[in-house]
Write a protein that binds this DNA or RNA. Sequence first.
DNA 1: CTGGGGAGGGGGCCC
DNA 2: GGGGCCCCCTCCCCA
Length: 271
Amino acid sequence: MPRSFLVKTHSSHRVSNYRQLETQREINGACSACRGLAVPLLLPDKAASSTPGDPPLPWDRTSAVCPISLPLPRTEEARGASGPDPLEGSRADLWTGRAPSEPLKDSLNHLNLPPLRVPPTRWPPIAGPDGGQAPDRLQAAPGGLGRPHCHKPCHLRAPRCFTCRFCDKEYASLGALKMHIRTHTLPCLCSVCGKAFSRPWLLQGHIRTHTGEKPYTCSHCGRAFADRSNLRAHLQTHSDTKKYQCNSCARTFSRMSLLARHEESGCRRGP
DNA sequence: CTGGGGAGGGGGCCC
DNA sequence: GGGGCCCCCTCCCCA
């Protein structure tokens, strides 16, 4: 069973757009693990800010969340040369207090998050749909991250378990719970594009998409990849034996996802 | 429909 | 206990 399968099984739960999760970010402090991560290159055009005079955007306020230093020259020419930023509206929504865009509001409703406190001194208020304060989704539980005891039937056989107050997942240790909590709070923020991640190394991998760094090289063809997993998947293409076989037609595939898509499309060839 | 690259996610393990 | 890293996975997109 895939490990990720344990948490999110339905595609409807997948958050492919980080606008949906940005409001969940841990507010009351920077992610210490992300300190020191830097992007030593020019900002791509798509990361340029909006028009001058607009309120400052997240990447201009690195002190707000994760203080990832970004000593980048950002000229007005670069700002002006870029086209409209598809994420601009949502970013501005989150950091300026303007009412969230409709997709963002829908996402918030979809997430159905429990409340969590937002310290007003560290985080700009997010306007709700009616122009008032947004629903208080980030309010922390009194005195902790989660519920230290189960008050319902618990699937863990541990004498004590910790339940995530965001999604009711249960963990045998507080450390495991804290790690899980990060997937809700997303404390690691990319100062280039504003995307948020649960862990520093995820952010590092994302930063490579900005830098173009590809440290993983295929020993067969020399092709480079930014992500080890993608290299591993690529290595499968060099393999004669494909791991995943269709039960109906015996075709083999290099990836489970390809097999799944093959079966979903309706394999009628038979064995 | 298929193959593959790119991006990102989660839990577990080790130090 | 925390952080870094690993492994395995999914989803999206394009040719």
